[in-house]
Design a protein around this nucleic acid. Sequence first.
DNA 1: TTGTATGCGTTATCAG
DNA 2: CTGATAACGCATACAA
Lengths: 356, 356
Amino acid sequence: MKFEAVTIKDIAKALGLSTSTVSRALRDSYEISPETKRLVLEYAEKINYHPNPIALGLKERRTRSIGVIVAEIANSFFSQAIDGIESIAYHNGYNVIISQSRESSEREQINLNYLTSRSIDGLIVSVSSETTDFSNFRELFERGMPIVFFDRIVSEIKTHKVIVDSYQGAYDATRHLVTNGYQRIAAIASSESLSITRDRLAGYRAALAESGLALPDEYVRYCPHGGLIQTEISDAVAQLLAIDPRPDAIVAISDKLTTGCLRVLKTRQIAVPQDIALIGFSNSDLTELIDPALSIIKQPAFEMGEIATTLLLQMIESKRPITEFETRSLAPQLIVRASSAPAGSRWETNVPLTAR
Amino acid sequence: MKFEAVTIKDIAKALGLSTSTVSRALRDSYEISPETKRLVLEYAEKINYHPNPIALGLKERRTRSIGVIVAEIANSFFSQAIDGIESIAYHNGYNVIISQSRESSEREQINLNYLTSRSIDGLIVSVSSETTDFSNFRELFERGMPIVFFDRIVSEIKTHKVIVDSYQGAYDATRHLVTNGYQRIAAIASSESLSITRDRLAGYRAALAESGLALPDEYVRYCPHGGLIQTEISDAVAQLLAIDPRPDAIVAISDKLTTGCLRVLKTRQIAVPQDIALIGFSNSDLTELIDPALSIIKQPAFEMGEIATTLLLQMIESKRPITEFETRSLAPQLIVRASSAPAGSRWETNVPLTAR
DNA sequence: TTGTATGCGTTATCAG
DNA sequence: CTGATAACGCATACAA
């Protein structure tokens, strides 16, 4: 038995009315007699009638659902963002369709095609680290599909964007290391094509330059696949460790890289921060419980998801096309522990945990 | 400008053909001349035609999308499961619509109504901790909607289910504590109405009974909202700590509870495992990096999502109704560190990390 | 080989 | 106040 749903027709037949009368009664139209309305409403309730959203979509040219494309769902930052997206969507009666690119342009493209062609009213995207050609997004946007980018944005497309102040986050993190006496501060980054990679490295570089510290080329290692490929991170870390003299600190530029880096160091039995200091972007719910010497830069992922969705729904529901697009830049939170935060830091710091 | 899509009509008009001819050409029907096919295909490609999934859905009475309801997306276990769900869905050309109940029956119900009424072809559910009345799920299922439950299942509904061997996981974890000399082993659990709570507590109780250890009623504390309410976990932990003599170990029965418990203990400056041992279910990507004394029971979340989806797609795509439903029970993984695993443990254990 | 007509569930327009 | 009909985009039975 296939799932057979109750339609307006069933009600009409049962009550000896026409479908249009039933339709109007259900929408509480003024032209229907109270008596008929009562009858219809009661019967509809009784047989558990729900309007068919597909038919509605066909009619109204909208589906009340939005698409989301991220690199991977099982990543704290993205899952928190999706949480925020779902929250706003839910309160506005929208469904959320998620898909992941797994950092592959091809897959991103397939998902895009999949979601598009009007099964969604709008799209929220954090682009894959592999993507360099954004013409498909641009075309889609220019053909009228509302799109909001978050975190990994496409600068060249003029639409709403939601980001954190990556530059400032990386800058402050690096300054923190400098203030605490570290001299050879290396960095591990994602794909060069990502907006966040560029911004964060810029902050890192600025902090070093300002402190008069050296920055040999070999101090910066890229992971083109964002650490999604197994050996990518361990290779990068290995290369950093092979430098002579060895760096005494590492700045990890993304969630995945921070945990990956920490994992590699532990496996290699390199103590953090005794042997080498580590500071990185991370949204894991457990970072604050790990090794007390790990400081992290936390992004307001949930809020980013909320804001992106609010902006998207505005675009979808506004009568006239939107011409002014904004870029919301939120402050990340530098959570410093075990050692004190630099004096005058504008970041909130959490309560130091017990020393054991 | 609203997003206006290309339809079969546009192609027909441009090429001076009828819509049916175009439709058939696009579907590579045998009745269309190669020449016409070429023409249509070329033009469709050129103007970037994509069939309207809504119209298709209305016609074929299917949407090629599946719904997912979980307690919260930003929970490692669930986000990993969703990862698995999306993987299988993607490879079969299905979209995934997610929604979260936030452990609220009401919200679960609203999402259910929302997804149902044929905007989805099937449903994957892990029920909310608050839900005790499953009649809506049952009715829906009986009316023909394919449903697969995972993790938090509804035993009374006869459909496919995917779970981990909760009993065995909790049993082995508790045995591990006993073997390592702990005597007063307490437990912190989710809502009593959840299948997993019952199974896991049963495993815990069995292990204690078998070891001849006492189990006063006060040793088991429930968090009806699964720890989603702020003070729920800290209150439960406080109550356990107030017992005289104080328990020397705690078994945490779910993801959320394990991290919550750990957080409370750290805040209270209670060392794990020096002051009190902790072992719990957890799927966080970082558990293995936390305090080396924390042992965890890890669920194969990704695989569970994959299997649930595979079963669901079978139900959706099978011609005749399925009458035989299976319950897949997977083995969890007990990851023991810092202290050795019990002799003869059938669980894989990971490599001990460096002592500091 | 191609075109015409119909239906999927709903609402809007027009007629009673 | 209510009913018949067209339309949304597509696939298909039936005609030609």
